[in-house]
């Protein structure tokens, strides 16, 4: 019947409104649920999320060795030309010429943190770090060289 439907409608509407108000009322009374990070104040204790992408870094071990073969797969994978790899040829122990990286140039100002280079890397030599404090006074400072000076490729990585 029309009247019964009408009254049912009203009570259903009221109930759904009260459900909504219960949720917001819960948050209003439970202040420990607050998720705001007061950033510059809590800098010392700030913990970024594990999967936050702040910049690309190259993994170096304690012997200052990395796993980059200079294959430039990351350079090809990058959609906006953030990575530039300059290779050189080194003589290895057997006197053969071997390709190795000279500089791994990374333009942070162009990077969109899309993670495609990390996926493309066959030797897992680069990764994303959660550091986000990149502000500098000069744009040129954002062009970084990722391989550390004097570093060389790990033995056994082809």
């Amino acid at each position: 019947m029309f009247i019964i439907d009408y009254i049912k409608d009203i009570f259903k509407g009221l109930k759904s409104l009260l459900t909504g108000m219960r949720v917001t009322g819960y948050y209003f009374t439970h202040h420990k649920e607050i998720i705001t990070e007061q950033y510059p104040d809590n800098r010392a204790t700030l913990k970024m999320a594990d999967r936050f992408r702040g910049e690309v870094v190259m993994i170096h071990d304690e012997n200052n060795e990395h796993a980059c073969t200079g294959c430039s797969a990351c350079e090809l994978a990058c959609p906006n030309g953030t990575i530039k790899i300059i290779n050189k040829f080194e003589l290895n122990a057997e006197g053969k010429k071997k390709k190795a990286i000279d500089t791994f140039i990374y333009h942070l100002e162009l990077c969109t943190m899309c993670n495609l280079c990390v996926v493309a890397c066959p030797t897992d030599t680069i990764k994303m770090e959660p550091n986000f404090e990149h502000s500098v006074y000069d744009r040129s400072k954002l062009t970084k060289v990722l391989n550390r000076p004097g570093s060389k490729i790990k033995a056994g990585v082809e």
């Binding site: 917001t24 948050y27 209003f28 202040h31 649920e33 607050i34 998720i35 705001t36 007061q38």
Partner: peptide, 10 residues
């Protein structure tokens, strides 16, 4: 303030 607390902000 009420808006902030309801939206889990400060």
């Amino acid at each position: 303030k009420v808006a902030a607390f309801i939206q889990i902000r400060l």
